[in-house]
């Protein structure tokens, strides 16, 4: 493995040095993970840090940091640099891009207040004119409320407008927030449904903690995808010649009919678009979701099974046609 350049190692130490308050104890593995360093490499760098200080380099002018039994321990106040350094221009741009991706643009008060922690010449609005890693926006406060509740394992009451059109108030135990192709979701145990559910964050009108807590196991907080295919039900769907099937639009889709341009059954990899009558198996997490996507393609796509998805398609279509 290539050795990390000294400049990068120095920047890592300078980024965390203000956290080394006298008496603090930080697990080495946690700090290493945060900095994307190996514990061994970080321990070595912290040993180097313990040699740093200011003239005349007497013990009270040195950085009193040690790694003891896997813990980073600090025994006396820092001689200087006890306040965090502002984010450099590149760090500020990276943070702004991450926040854009979560729906916080430069005109959001959260981003504007974070400018107090960035290089003075950083201008979030200007940065956004050059790079936009944007997702759609969410109702104000919803994303933060879900994040705080997921982190602290607290129950949230949400007002949710589903794709099926039913507005419901639900108590959920949010396990993990995740983004996929521009949309954010929260995977949660829904007390109304009595089961695990995935909710699109931009369909949540409000989110408010109700004061209750919940317990989680590791599996609950594991990363998710919006379209896991393993244990989801599947619908068999027929695309006609004008059906415009694209594997990118139907993640996890599986070709089940023969087609002149394809050879046999199998996973459909990549974004290739194919034409012609096709029968496809599509995994779906919500009946409303697949029904709305089928209806959106007019009469060019037909759900062959199961019956409840066919019925949902009719209901969505009739909501427009009367």
């Amino acid at each position: 493995m290539a050795k990390t350049p000294a400049s990068e190692r120095a920047r890592r130490l300078l980024a965390v040095i203000a956290r080394l308050e006298s008496g603090s104890e930080i697990p080495l593995v946690d700090l290493a993970a945060e900095l994307d360093a190996s514990p061994t490499e970080l321990a070595s760098d912290l040993e180097t840090l313990s040699l740093c200080g200011v003239a005349p380099f007497t013990p009270d002018e040195m950085i009193d940091v040690f790694v003891v039994d896997g813990m980073v321990e600090v025994y006396s106040p820092l001689p200087a640099l006890d306040r965090p350094v502002r984010l450099s221009m590149t760090e500020a741009r990276a943070l702004a891009a991450a926040l854009q991706g979560a729906g916080f643009s430069a005109d959001d008060s959260l981003v504007q207040r974070l400018e107090a922690a960035t290089a003075r010449e950083f201008d979030a609005a200007q940065a956004e004119r050059i790079v936009r890693a944007a997702s759609g926006q969410h109702a104000k406060g919803v994303y933060g409320s879900l994040a705080a509740a997921a982190g602290a394992h607290r129950v949230v009451t949400i007002d949710y407008e589903s794709a099926g059109g039913a507005g419901t108030s639900r108590e959920i135990e949010p396990h993990v927030l995740f983004a996929e192709r521009g949309a954010w979701y929260v995977a949660a145990h829904c007390r109304l449904a009595g089961a695990e559910r995935t909710f699109r964050v931009d369909r949540i009108r409000s989110a408010q903690e109700n004061g209750e807590s919940f317990t989680v196991d590791a599996a609950d907080a594991a990363p998710r995808t919006a379209t896991p295919s393993g244990d989801l039900p599947t619908a068999r769907v027929r695309f006609d010649a004008a059906g415009d099937f694209s594997a990118r639009d139907w993640p996890g889709a599986r070709l089940v009919s023969e087609h002149p341009a394809e050879s046999g059954d199998g996973d459909i990899a990549g974004p290739k678009a194919v034409l012609g009558p096709l029968e496809i198996e599509i995994p779906y997490a919500g009946t409303d979701w697949i029904a709305r996507r089928v209806v959106a393609r007019g009469g060019a796509v037909e759900v062959l099974s199961p019956p409840d998805v066919r019925a949902a398609v009719v209901a969505v279509a009739e909501s427009y046609s009367g």
Partner: peptide
Amino acid sequence: FAPELRLALAKLAS
């Protein structure tokens, strides 16, 4: 921008 974001979050953590 992961390397720079990592440093940004490390600074803000305090």
